[in-house]
Amino acid sequence: MINNLIVSGSPHIHKPESVARIMWTVVISLIPALIAGVIIFGANALWVTLAAVTAAVLTELILGLCTRKKVTVFDGTAVITGILLAFNLPSEVPLWLPIVGAVFSIAIGKAVFGGLGQNIFNPALVGRVFLMASWPKYMTTFTLPFNLDAVTSATPLAALKEGKVLEHISYLDLFLGKHGGCLGEVCILALLLGAALLFIKRYISWHIPFTYILTTGVFVYIFGGDKLFSGDWLFHILSGGLILGAFFMATDYVATPLTARGQLIFGVGCGLLTAVIRLWGGYPEGVSYAILMMNATTPFIDRYTKVRIYGTR
């Protein structure tokens, strides 16, 4: 997809790629993280995800019928929006929360702008930010992993923000997801498995995820510690929604730059904003805001990194 937009002289090779095919592959790539979420947080994680997906698909269907546009439900984009939204929620939220969020994602985040391919922001993140601003109480109450009594716990990043020492969490725990957090973001291992599939299929390129994670890591390493060059960069990469955001949400085809150079700028911008929000901002986590802010700059990045047409100035 990345370089498939080049138009050249014949002969052309036909590939059986289509929007639907790519999108359903992305859905498959998200399943390991869902399984991990269910193992870590219990069946609730599954119900939340199903609620979000169902609401997203139904909203897309109803709006498609109302506006008499081509019904785009079966291409799987609504399913992805639903899954990604659910992945950004705590597992113990009441079930109406993912439903309202998914309706908002599709209706306001996508349909208002003209539907598939027209949205300027990642719809799932629009939904998440809406929920975060509307019901912060539910969105910031996380439960301990492997605990059926739903004991609340802070996420590692939130605990860090409040100045607590985090000695009991090892990097391995962070990597496997044994800590409080949103249901789809905690298990880095599962997310990387899914991302690997997308890389092998060449559906996403390295530009955005790599620069995004690298920038956050370097910035945190330089400014995140008590003195310069002493920040805990590995902790920041492994905690919060950075991996989920970098591989699955910052790589959205619609709301990100088209050119490789633009994508590098986009990744660096996301990384800087995320690190700045985490270190000095009001919220413990900044991935969703960083990606949304960079989504807004995409048209400008595209304009200034446009490939010059041969023979023109």
């Binding site: 306001i108 809406f130 601003a133 509307s134 019901w135 912060p136």
Partner: peptide, 14 residues
Amino acid sequence: EPVFVFGMPSGALL
């Protein structure tokens, strides 16, 4: 459950 976002400026714009 109040939708707090509508009490904020962003809600007004929406």
